[in-house]
Protein backbone atom coordinates (compact mmCIF):
# COMPACT_ATOMS: atom_id res chain seq x y z
CA UNK A 1 0.00 0.00 0.00
CA UNK A 2 2.83 2.41 0.92
CA UNK A 3 4.42 2.25 -2.51
CA UNK A 4 1.15 3.34 -4.17
CA UNK A 5 0.96 6.38 -1.90
CA UNK A 6 4.50 7.31 -2.93
CA UNK A 7 3.53 6.87 -6.58
CA UNK A 8 0.54 9.20 -6.08
CA UNK A 9 2.61 11.95 -4.45
CA UNK A 10 5.52 11.84 -6.93
CA UNK A 11 4.41 14.96 -8.92
CA UNK A 12 4.29 16.98 -5.68
CA UNK A 13 7.68 15.63 -4.59
CA UNK A 14 9.05 16.47 -8.05
CA UNK A 15 7.72 20.02 -7.66
CA UNK A 16 9.45 20.27 -4.26
CA UNK A 17 12.76 19.24 -5.90
CA UNK A 18 12.18 21.84 -8.65
CA UNK A 19 11.33 24.70 -6.25
CA UNK A 20 14.17 24.05 -3.78
CA UNK A 21 16.71 23.61 -6.61
CA UNK A 22 15.43 26.81 -8.27
CA UNK A 23 15.78 28.92 -5.11
CA UNK A 24 19.20 27.48 -4.25
CA UNK A 25 20.61 27.70 -7.80
CA UNK A 26 19.21 31.21 -8.43
CA UNK A 27 20.58 32.56 -5.16
CA UNK A 28 23.85 30.63 -5.41
CA UNK A 29 24.70 31.08 -9.09
CA UNK A 30 23.59 34.60 -10.04
CA UNK A 31 25.01 34.43 -13.57
CA UNK A 32 22.68 31.49 -14.28
CA UNK A 33 19.70 33.88 -14.44
CA UNK A 34 16.09 33.10 -13.56
CA UNK A 35 14.96 31.58 -16.87
CA UNK A 36 17.86 29.12 -17.17
CA UNK A 37 17.52 28.24 -13.49
CA UNK A 38 13.82 27.48 -14.03
CA UNK A 39 14.48 25.36 -17.14
CA UNK A 40 17.31 23.29 -15.62
CA UNK A 41 15.58 22.70 -12.29
CA UNK A 42 12.30 21.82 -14.04
CA UNK A 43 14.23 19.19 -16.02
CA UNK A 44 15.80 17.90 -12.79
CA UNK A 45 12.34 17.48 -11.22
CA UNK A 46 10.98 15.80 -14.36
CA UNK A 47 13.84 13.27 -14.49
CA UNK A 48 13.36 12.57 -10.75
CA UNK A 49 9.63 11.92 -11.24
CA UNK A 50 10.20 9.71 -14.30
CA UNK A 51 12.98 7.63 -12.70
CA UNK A 52 11.01 7.17 -9.45
CA UNK A 53 7.83 6.21 -11.36
CA UNK A 54 9.71 3.58 -13.40
CA UNK A 55 11.50 2.23 -10.30
CA UNK A 56 8.29 1.94 -8.27
CA UNK A 57 6.28 0.32 -11.07
CA UNK A 58 9.03 -2.18 -11.89
CA UNK A 59 9.52 -3.06 -8.21
CA UNK A 60 5.88 -4.12 -7.78
CA UNK A 61 4.67 -6.86 -10.19
CA UNK A 62 1.08 -5.66 -9.78
CA UNK A 63 2.05 -2.21 -11.08
CA UNK A 64 4.17 -3.28 -14.08
CA UNK A 65 1.25 -3.16 -16.51
CA UNK A 66 0.43 0.34 -15.23
CA UNK A 67 3.90 1.77 -15.94
CA UNK A 68 2.97 3.72 -19.07
CA UNK A 69 -0.31 5.22 -17.70
CA UNK A 70 1.46 6.26 -14.47
CA UNK A 71 4.34 7.79 -16.45
CA UNK A 72 1.81 9.83 -18.46
CA UNK A 73 -0.27 10.84 -15.40
CA UNK A 74 2.74 11.78 -13.27
CA UNK A 75 4.44 13.48 -16.23
CA UNK A 76 1.37 15.60 -17.03
CA UNK A 77 0.68 16.40 -13.35
CA UNK A 78 4.32 17.37 -12.75
CA UNK A 79 4.39 19.38 -16.00
CA UNK A 80 1.24 21.25 -14.94
CA UNK A 81 2.65 21.96 -11.46
CA UNK A 82 5.90 23.18 -13.06
CA UNK A 83 3.87 25.43 -15.39
CA UNK A 84 1.97 26.79 -12.34
CA UNK A 85 5.27 27.52 -10.58
CA UNK A 86 6.75 29.16 -13.68
CA UNK A 87 3.77 31.53 -13.85
CA UNK A 88 3.95 32.26 -10.14
CA UNK A 89 7.57 33.39 -10.66
CA UNK A 90 6.62 35.19 -13.88
CA UNK A 91 3.86 37.10 -12.03
CA UNK A 92 6.48 38.27 -9.55
CA UNK A 93 8.77 39.41 -12.35
CA UNK A 94 6.46 40.98 -14.94
CA UNK A 95 2.84 41.27 -13.80
CA UNK A 96 1.23 44.58 -12.94
CA UNK A 97 -1.11 43.39 -10.19
CA UNK A 98 1.60 42.35 -7.69
CA UNK A 99 3.52 45.50 -8.63
CA UNK A 100 0.52 47.75 -7.94
CA UNK A 101 -0.31 45.90 -4.71
CA UNK A 102 3.37 46.27 -3.73
CA UNK A 103 2.98 50.05 -4.00
CA UNK A 104 0.16 49.85 -1.43
CA UNK A 105 2.32 47.69 0.83
CA UNK A 106 5.15 50.24 0.70
CA UNK A 107 2.87 53.27 1.14
CA UNK A 108 0.95 51.80 4.14
CA UNK A 109 -1.93 54.19 3.41
CA UNK A 110 -4.81 54.49 0.92
CA UNK A 111 -3.70 55.64 -2.54
CA UNK A 112 -5.61 57.52 -5.23
CA UNK A 113 -5.40 56.61 -8.91
CA UNK A 114 -3.11 59.62 -9.39
CA UNK A 115 -0.79 58.38 -6.60
CA UNK A 116 -0.50 54.97 -8.25
CA UNK A 117 0.01 56.40 -11.74
CA UNK A 118 2.74 58.70 -10.40
CA UNK A 119 4.57 55.71 -8.84
CA UNK A 120 4.19 53.45 -11.86
CA UNK A 121 6.15 54.67 -14.87
CA UNK A 122 4.26 53.14 -17.81
CA UNK A 123 6.76 54.37 -20.41
CA UNK A 124 9.61 52.73 -18.46
CA UNK A 125 7.65 49.48 -18.18
CA UNK A 126 7.06 49.50 -21.95
CA UNK A 127 10.80 50.03 -22.55
CA UNK A 128 11.65 47.18 -20.15
CA UNK A 129 9.34 44.85 -22.07
CA UNK A 130 10.71 45.95 -25.45
CA UNK A 131 14.27 45.31 -24.22
CA UNK A 132 13.23 41.85 -22.99
CA UNK A 133 11.74 41.05 -26.42
CA UNK A 134 14.83 42.36 -28.25
CA UNK A 135 17.27 40.53 -25.93
CA UNK A 136 15.43 37.24 -26.42
CA UNK A 137 15.35 37.74 -30.21
CA UNK A 138 11.54 37.78 -30.36
CA UNK A 139 11.67 41.16 -32.09
CA UNK A 140 14.54 42.72 -34.04
CA UNK A 141 15.29 46.36 -34.80
CA UNK A 142 16.36 47.36 -38.34
CA UNK A 143 16.66 50.97 -39.58
CA UNK A 144 14.63 52.36 -36.69
CA UNK A 145 11.80 49.84 -37.07
CA UNK A 146 10.82 46.71 -35.18
CA UNK A 147 10.13 43.39 -36.94
CA UNK A 148 9.18 39.95 -35.66
CA UNK A 149 12.31 37.86 -35.02
CA UNK A 150 11.90 34.39 -33.53
CA UNK A 151 8.22 33.53 -33.83
CA UNK A 152 7.65 31.94 -30.36
CA UNK A 153 5.99 35.00 -28.78
CA UNK A 154 4.04 35.61 -31.99
CA UNK A 155 2.59 32.07 -31.87
CA UNK A 156 1.74 32.48 -28.16
CA UNK A 157 0.09 35.85 -28.91
CA UNK A 158 -1.94 34.38 -31.78
CA UNK A 159 -3.05 31.46 -29.59
CA UNK A 160 -4.12 33.84 -26.79
CA UNK A 161 -6.03 36.05 -29.25
CA UNK A 162 -7.69 32.99 -30.80
CA UNK A 163 -8.78 31.77 -27.35
CA UNK A 164 -10.04 35.26 -26.45
CA UNK A 165 -12.15 35.20 -29.58
CA UNK A 166 -13.46 31.67 -28.92
CA UNK A 167 -14.21 32.12 -25.20
CA UNK A 168 -14.98 35.83 -24.86
CA UNK A 169 -15.94 36.79 -28.43
CA UNK A 170 -13.34 39.58 -28.70
CA UNK A 171 -9.66 39.97 -29.52
CA UNK A 172 -8.92 42.57 -26.84
CA UNK A 173 -10.24 43.53 -23.39
CA UNK A 174 -10.71 47.07 -24.74
CA UNK A 175 -13.06 46.06 -27.59
Amino acid sequence: MGIKWLLAFLPVLGLAVHVVANVVSYRGIRRLGMLKSLIYTFALGLVSVAVATVAICLADPALRAELLPYLIVNGIAYGALGYDYFHFINLNVTARRPRIMGEFLDAQRPLTLEDITARYDSALQVRVRVKRLVDSGQIVERDGRYFIGRPTMLYITRFIMFMKLVMLGKRSEFE
Partner: peptide, 18 residues
Protein backbone atom coordinates in the same frame (compact mmCIF):
# COMPACT_ATOMS: atom_id res chain seq x y z
CA UNK B 1 3.92 42.30 -24.50
CA UNK B 2 1.05 40.72 -26.41
CA UNK B 3 -0.12 44.16 -27.64
CA UNK B 4 3.40 45.03 -28.83
CA UNK B 5 3.99 41.73 -30.65
CA UNK B 6 0.54 41.90 -32.28
CA UNK B 7 1.12 45.46 -33.50
CA UNK B 8 4.58 44.62 -34.90
CA UNK B 9 3.13 41.56 -36.62
CA UNK B 10 0.32 43.64 -38.15
CA UNK B 11 2.78 46.21 -39.45
CA UNK B 12 4.17 43.42 -41.70
CA UNK B 13 7.13 44.10 -44.00
CA UNK B 14 7.03 47.83 -43.19
CA UNK B 15 7.89 47.15 -39.55
CA UNK B 16 6.78 49.33 -36.64
CA UNK B 17 8.69 52.60 -36.06
CA UNK B 18 10.63 52.45 -32.79
Amino acid sequence: TEVMVDRIDRSGDQGLPV
